[in-house]
Amino acid sequence: MMRYVVVFLLSLATYLVFVGSVTLYDIVTGIAVSSVAATVFGRILVRNPRKLEVRRFVELVRYLATFIATEIRAHLELAKIVLSPNVSKSIRPGIVRVRYDLESDYGVTLLANSITNTPGTLVVDLDEEERALYVHWINVRTLEPEEIRDIVSRSFEEHARKIFD
């Protein structure tokens, strides 16, 4: 039951944000569309409804705070590189392998998208058997696997585990 409620709320929010007004007509049609969408997508979007806990939503909010802070720091770092007098000297581009330890699809997706959305790092491939992401890094500072993981993905991975695993 919970899975349908969550999908219903997500689709109603999408509907109202897209329409951009909250009249009686919007609410009635929004509820009708969201009910149908929830019955169709409920099982597709939420595989394990027991995971829908308040604790995980709180973790999601905390993740967003960390993400925004990391994002600002990465932007500043990259801006420094772009504005430096000799760009080619201040970068060391390369592709590194970053191992991860996450179970759920959503967790892996959150981790990969967080890495891609931070300027300077970009996920180019995913190896599910080896549990590794291949990440293009504009400034490869180290080749030690654990150090790479510390810099590139550690905090995102811990948040993803708390939210989705």
Binding site: V7, L10, S11, T14, Y15, F18, V19, T29, G30, V33, S34, A37, V40, F41, I44, L45, D105, Y106, V108, T109, A112, N113, V123, L126, E128
Partner: peptide, 26 residues
Amino acid sequence: LSTIVRTVTRIVALMIVVVGSAIILH
């Protein structure tokens, strides 16, 4: 495709269907 693409598609597909319905109903 990879897990990343499939997971994002699941969420985005729902939103596309909802937005499409909103376009029809308005």
